[in-house]
Design a protein around this nucleic acid. Sequence first.
DNA 1: ATGGCCTGATCTTCAGGA
Length: 259
Amino acid sequence: MRIATWNVNSIGARLPRLLAWLESSGTDVLCLQEAKCTAEQFPTAELRELGYEAAVNATGRWNGVAVLSRVGLDQVVTGLPGGPDYEGAQEPRAISATCGGVRVWSVYVPNGRDVEHDHYGYKLRWFEALRDAVAADAAGDLPFAVLGDYNVAPTDEDVYDPAVFEGLTHVTPAERAALAALRDTGLSDVVPRPLKYDRPYTYWDYRQLCFPKNRGMRIDLVYGNAPFASAVKDAYVDREERKGKGASDHAPVVVDLDI
DNA sequence: ATGGCCTGATCTTCAGGA
């Protein structure tokens, strides 16, 4: 089974590339983030023509997540149970489903914006709720993984220059502790291969030639439990999808499972 | 081959992204 996670930065803007990539990559299950559309606007019909079912949690211009699958889509849970509100409402940042015997979550963790901003505390609370929500499945005997845009670089090796990120979100001890707490439920980081250069970055800013200069970050992660991790045959960042006109600023992370 | 931001709405300017 080929399973992937990809922050598409608007499914409307990305649809031609998304459809082409699903076909060319042979992906069976895609955890997608930043749909940036309403549920009604989600391209369910186009995806169905390619053979994919879709479970969608999307409410409009911001956020929005989905699980696409051509190997079954069952036991869908929309949203993060016990998740915190932001400005009085739950945001569409999580959805989970069972696809071909593997249970997956697609998550878009809050950005945090600035360590002084309310969004940063919201981000840490969101991680606590995620840990509590996945703990039982993480410790279970069935293959299980949380895939998505975590908006945290796990180590200094996961950013192109740690000095640039001093004092900024995505690298703080509290955010990295939140990742560690999540792993403590029984999950491990499935680190992908880079297809070029030495680090498996998954995000490069659109600005300042960051991609050609490989000024990237590894913030799109696959955290799998033991049955999932032991089934991993290969994992890589498909940086080809970051190239050219109409690319997302994130590349897909692809995992091949012996399932 | 990889190119000095992109996206959608509040729409000609802005918030948010990270």
